[in-house]
Design a protein around this nucleic acid. Structure first.
Lengths: 138, 138
DNA sequence: CTATTTGCAAACGCTTTGCCTGATT
DNA sequence: AATCAGGCAAAGCGTTTGCAAATAG
């Protein structure tokens, strides 16, 4: 009954995720892991990310648009997406739990949590004010 | 140069969207329009929705996961997604623009706007506490 | 040894696109 | 008449899945 084994592949995927600060896509992780492990398959990366997310070890950022991003910071927090380079950063802003109760009161819905994503232009893209990152898929 | 024509199809799509309060998917709109217009194609629905969104007549809700949802309320506002029936509702909560400035100050990012989505259980699903809507795709 | 996990490739769901015909101005 | 929009079907992308072989415990 579902004993979870520790495999090189899974460790490698976690390792890459832990060493990235702007939350990557499955494909980006795959490309990285492949450098050390040429035979790993994209399917495995997807499967392992899903499993790790189910086990609560990582977070699947189910926000604006495809593809999914992954985050090893599992605490409740907000994100910022740069509209130029499309990278996602953590935002160190206090999570407002009061607003959930407020919306519950006003609507009658049972609000459990909320997702908040800020959009704009990141520091690097403000400086090098152009399109440098436009093809980066991380 | 790109003169936009008024067509039956586009009118019908807009009409369906205006008469729905929980923001539907392209496919749901397609099924509805097809009742009156059996030969309309799904591709047309996608094309028209994209065009209407580009023109600012409707909103493509670029939030949690696929498929995309559409909204004819183009003003800035928040959404609530029911985790049971998967429908999306407008939330009549004041949009907090101050928080964007605050995050800008703290991070240096140029924050332009934010997206906020509340998740929980809607009124109907609280009452009929089961899975009635689980296959509805609107 | 046996259940879990992998690699691979095929299938998936949603969306976009190319091409040609039909409609609108 | 000229151009824009539609229908259809094929292709696209990110993701999931079936299966036989490999591997962790």
């Amino acid at each position: 009954m579902a004993v979870t084994r520790r495999t090189k592949q899974r460790e490698a995927i976690l390792e890459v995720l832990k060493n990235t600060d702007c939350h990557p896509t499955a494909n980006w992780i795959y490309e990285r892991v492949k450098e050390d492990m040429p035979h790993i398959s994209l399917g495995t990366v997807y499967r392992d990310l899903k499993m790790l997310a189910r086990r609560g070890e990582i977070l699947e950022i189910d926000f604006t648009s495809n593809p999914s991003r992954y985050d090893c910071n599992t605490g409740s927090h907000y994100h910022f997406r740069c509209l130029k380079c499309d990278r996602i950063f953590d935002v160190d802003e206090k999570v407002n739990t009061e607003i959930d109760r407020q919306v519950s009161r006003n609507t009658g819905f049972n609000v459990l949590y909320h997702c908040l994503e800020f959009h704009g232009v990141c520091l690097e893209c403000q400086k090098k004010d152009s399109l440098i990152y436009k093809d980066s898929k991380n």
